[in-house]
Every structure is written in C-alpha cells, then in structure tokens.
C-alpha cells in the first residue's frame, strides 16, 4: 500500500527549472488574483495550467516574466525561484528585462510587430545588441526552422508579417521567442485563436521544443493539456487545487474538485 502511494507521487529525479513558492499576487485595485500558489516547473517538460476562466492561471503565468510590472500598482508577494541561479526573480532588485531575456512568452493572439518576417524574428537579437548580418541571418533561419515555418517563408522573408495566416503568425511569434534561446517558454492559450490544423502544428512544435527548454502553458482546452503536457496543474479561484503528472490528473485525480472539472461536471 505504501509503495503504491510512492509510485503515484511525482518522480523526484526530475530537475526543477523554476519553482513558485507561496506566491500571492494583487492587482492594482487590491483584488488578490493568486493565493499561495506553490508549483514546480520541470526542465524539458511541459507543464499545463488548467482551470475555469478567471481562476488566475494567466495571472500566474505572467508572473514568470514579470509582465505585471508593465501596469502600475500590481504587487507580487512570495517567490519564483529560477534555477540554476537559485534567485527569486520577483525581487525588486532583479531586472525584469534580464528575466524576460531568459523566459520568453507567446501570447493568446498572435502579435507580430509591424515589420518584415525577418525583422520580427531578429527583433529580440537586435534588442540584445546583435547587429552582425551573418549572425542574424543564421539565427533567424535557425529560429524559423525551429518553429517549422522556414519552408513556408524562406522566399519571402522581407514580406510584412501581417500577410501571414493566423497559424503562421503564431509560429512566427514562437520563432521570435525562440531566436534568443530562452530557457523557459510561457504559452498563454497559444492556440485559442487558431483552427484545428494550425493548433495541431503548434502542439507538435511544442513537443519538439521541450527537448531544448521548459514549457509552461495555460490552456482552456483540456484535451490539449492531456495531449501535450507532462504535468498538469488545476487552479480555481486563485488557488492551486492539484498538481500532478498529467496522466494521473486525467485518469485518477486525488481531489474531488479536479475530477469534477475534468469530467465536465463543473466549469
């Protein structure tokens, strides 16, 4: 009996890439959006955040690259420890720009810049001061290949990014985030604005990407979480209800609330 419980627990040989510890978050108007969330992000794994709208999963995700800093009055309380530095990236003396250079993000709606395809991908490199044409060319090609977009756009790199289809734009945004070789990539419902084929492409892409980096994804689509993630966290009303290996969450969740949500009785 004891043995069974241990096998059901998380495999502790996984390497922790980042970990939130007792994280609280308050918006400028005083509402508490996160309440004591503690969650590990494992290296080379996909961690999915699921839960009903307004449960705080996007808020939680956006803490990882300090996106909340853009809006005055927001307040973090608690820790997100980034490894191997073993540093709390929420501390005020940690530069959010440095954090964002290592933890990149792909948004719900594709948001390419009003520039050419090439310049979109080169943007992050230019921001880092890279200006050598040859290095840029190489990295742009590499990133576009990494986002499986290269074959579709290699002959029109100077075209405006807005001329691409929605799915292509989202892969361009992934390439853009990939070009700077981040350690963690955050995905905020990356396929909710896309059709099933484009969604499938992005999902396949994420499975490839996890060879190189760690992924944290917010999704409304439970099938998606089940398909691609290694770990799943169920959140409700700003609290983490359950975190476990994905197949455990979807087949044998330990909390009643999780089961209700997964089976569609609630949410």
């Amino acid at each position: 009996m004891v043995k069974k419980i241990i096998t059901n627990k998380l495999k502790h040989d996984e390497i922790i890439k980042a970990e939130s510890k007792n994280l609280n978050f308050f918006y400028a108007d005083g509402t508490q959006a996160l309440n004591g969330v503690s969650l590990p992000v494992y290296e080379n794994k996909i961690t999915a955040l699921i839960g009903p709208s307004g449960c705080g999963k996007s808020t939680f995700l956006r803490c990882f690259n300090r996106m909340h800093d853009l809006y005055p009055g927001n307040r973090y309380d608690g820790q997100i420890i980034l490894q191997p530095d073993n540093t709390n990236i929420l501390l005020t003396d940690v530069d959010p720009i440095e954090v964002r250079m290592r933890i990149s993000m792909v948004f719900q709606k594709p948001n390419p810049f009003p520039k050419s395809i090439y310049e979109n991908v080169a943007y992050g490199l230019r921001v880092r001061g890279e200006s050598k044409k040859r290095t840029l060319d190489e990295k742009v090609e590499e990133a576009l290949k990494g986002a499986s977009l290269w074959n579709e756009v290699k002959d029109r790199l100077q075209d405006l990014a807005f001329n691409l289809s929605g799915g292509q734009q989202q892969r361009l945004c992934i390439a853009r985030a990939l070009a700077t070789e981040p350690e963690i990539m955050l995905f905020d419902e990356p396929t909710s604005a896309l059709d099933p084929i484009a969604t499938m492409n992005i999902e396949e892409l994420m499975s490839e990407l996890k060879q190189k980096l760690s992924i944290l994804i917010v999704t409304h689509n439970m099938q998606q979480a089940a398909r691609i993630s290694d770990y799943t966290a169920y959140m409700y009303l700003g609290k983490l209800i359950e975190f476990d290996a994905t197949n455990k969450i979807f087949t044998n969740p330990s909390k009643k609330e999780t089961e209700d949500y997964i089976t569609g009785k609630f949410g």
Binding site: N65, M67, L70, I97, E98, R100, M101, S104, M105, F107, K109, N111, P112, F113, P114, K115, Y123, G124, R126, V127, R128, C173, R176, A177, T180
Partner: peptide, 29 residues
C-alpha cells in the same frame, strides 16, 4: 496601438525606449 503589441515587445526583453522606437512608432506611423 494595442497593448498586446507592447507586451510582445517587452516580453522579448525590450526596454521602454526600444519598444517605443522600434515597435510602437512603426505601428502608429
């Protein structure tokens, strides 16, 4: 210019100035 454009730029590690000059200005041209 939608906030999503700014967030995209900041998420790439851009500074305020880089965002303003390289993303917002061309978007609002």
């Amino acid at each position: 210019v939608p906030m999503s454009m700014r967030e995209g730029a900041y998420a790439m590690g851009a500074t305020r100035f880089q965002t303003a000059i390289r993303v917002i200005t061309p978007a609002a041209i």
